[in-house]
């Protein structure tokens, strides 16, 4: 199963490129010129994102470095432990939607400390794989097109994160 998926993953990019370039070539599109016409927008698109990503990252970094996140954790831990959620995993649940590098660092630490095949290691792996950095995605995706009002999307994204977190704990405890 994994070998198949891994092969698929390795083949995907070259095959997608070949199919799209090939299809265009046989449709008499000037492939080289048209590719570069599109690619020229790569830089400007990234430039559009700068203010949104910077705004998001600086606010999150203040919140984390100030110790406010730590205080939230101390309040949440006893409540979540009561519901059978291991306390070592609580920080990951809180950081995951805020910071991609932060949560990856935490997962690495947890795996090293408890071992990849421990309950905590499996939980950390599953949570990291099944959730996304919601704040980053909102900043980058909406920022790239200049959308300033994100409406309810952050809340919906956070609800998805919470459900993913709980579902990960439920299934890991059930299976292993």
């Amino acid at each position: 199963m994994f070998d198949f998926l891994n092969n698929l993953s390795q083949w995907a990019i070259p095959i997608i490129i070949l199919v799209i370039v090939g299809y265009a070539y046989f449709k008499d599109v000037e492939v080289y010129e048209v590719f570069t016409e599109g690619a020229v927008e790569g830089f400007t698109t990234v430039v559009e994102i700068i203010p949104y990503l910077i705004a998001m990252l600086m606010a999150i970094s203040i919140f984390r470095a100030s110790g406010a996140l730590e205080i939230c954790l101390q309040i949440l831990e006893p409540i979540l432990s009561f519901f059978g959620i291991p306390r070592q995993i609580v920080p990951l649940g809180l950081i995951r939607p805020l910071s991609g590098t932060g949560s990856l660092g935490l997962v690495t630490e947890l795996i090293q400390e408890y071992g990849p095949d421990s309950l905590i290691g499996r939980l950390a792996s599953t949570i990291q794989g099944s959730t996304e950095t919601t704040f980053y995605v909102v900043a980058v995706y909406f920022g790239a097109v200049g959308v300033k009002k994100s409406r309810y999307s952050i809340i919906a994204g956070l609800i998805a994160d919470v459900v993913g977190f709980i579902a990960a704990i439920y299934i890991v405890k059930l299976i292993f």
């Binding site: 799209i20 265009a24 570069t36 599109g38 700068i50 990252l57």
Partner: peptide, 28 residues
């Protein structure tokens, strides 16, 4: 760190916007 993330994004962004332009022009 944010600026670094964005700099690393320029390459893949250019690549895929180029490929996607081909996909559009050919009606793929």
């Amino acid at each position: 760190e944010g600026a670094m993330i964005l700099i690393r994004l320029i390459g893949p962004m250019s690549l895929w916007l180029g490929v996607m332009r081909l996909a559009e022009e050919s009606n793929f």
